[in-house]
């Protein structure tokens, strides 16, 4: 784990969970910043200065960006959070870059989710295949179901996870969710973005929620209004650091 040294877009100090191999780096962090601040508005791309990384440059990885939007009605709150995925890369051993896009500049504050692997190329060896494990999801009364494309690929120091939500019992649709991910290692703790779900007020990017994973337990309390809209396929895609790297 390490803290950032500085950044050029007005965010505070950023704490990264990390696994650093000689030819790739996995980073997890959640960053909030205000897109109206002058530093963000003048920068060409978002840059974070960090202590020496194990690699001096990388290929592109994905970093998710999310805004939170709550509309208040007499009957309660309607949630229209949204976001998308941005390109990110390691520019040099001390600089992490995220592309700057203007799409959500008026929807701040914004959240960046680093659930990212930064790899290198021409490493003298081809891809080494991992082993997929279907994720068995257990909920009380089996109220929450995921598709067959819900799986993990587990390594000693990090995990890749893909979730694809399938259905939910009607009675639980507006209640907080909690499930056990049987094959998830116990030492993974992370806030993970959940893109997808309908969003009638932001039909360019659609929905973006957040779930929490800790000690094999998945929780998700806040979901966009159109989470179960047809064809909006909420999912999660994340490289997660295991808490055994200190």
């Amino acid at each position: 784990m390490f803290n950032s040294i500085s950044n050029n877009f007005g965010a505070g100090q950023i704490t990264f969970k990390d696994y650093q191999a000689p030819n790739y780096v996995v980073l997890n962090a959640k960053v909030e910043f205000d897109p109206t601040n002058p530093a963000y508005q003048t920068c060409q791309q978002l840059e974070i200065t960090v202590p020496d990384l194990s690699i001096e440059r990388s290929t592109i990885g994905g970093v998710f960006v999310r805004f939170i939007e709550t509309q208040h009605y007499s009957w309660g709150d309607a949630i229209y959070d949204g976001g998308t995925v941005l390109k990110s890369w390691i520019k040099d051993k001390n600089t992490i870059v995220v592309e700057k896009q203007p799409w959500f500049d008026n929807n701040g504050p914004l959240l960046l989710y680093f659930v990212t692997m930064y790899a290198q190329l021409n490493q003298g060896a081809n891809t080494i295949k991992g082993t997929k494990q279907r994720l068995t999801v257990t909920t009380d009364g089996n109220y929450l179901r995921f598709s067959s494309d819900t799986f993990v690929v587990v390594f000693d120091h990090w995990v890749f996870m893909h979730l694809q939500f399938s259905s939910c019992s009607y009675a639980q649709r507006d209640l907080p969710w909690e499930a056990t991910f049987e094959q998830m290692p116990e030492d993974v703790t992370a806030d993970v973005p959940v893109p997808g779900g309908g969003n009638q007020f932001h039909q360019d990017c659609f929905g973006m929620g957040e779930c929490h994973i800790e000690n094999k337990i998945f929780t998700m309390d806040r979901r966009v209004m159109g989470f179960w809209d047809t064809g909006r396929e909420p999912f999660a895609f994340a490289f997660l650091v295991r808490d055994n790297n200190e």
């Binding site: 592109i60 994905g62 295949k129 494309d149 694809q164 909420p234 999660a236 490289f239």
Partner: peptide, 19 residues
């Protein structure tokens, strides 16, 4: 295509797992 709303014109990018 698997997750998220599908649109035909999509840029796929970045590091992806292989198994």
């Amino acid at each position: 295509h698997r997750g998220g709303p599908y649109y035909t014109h999509t840029e796929v990018f970045g590091t992806g797992i292989i198994y």
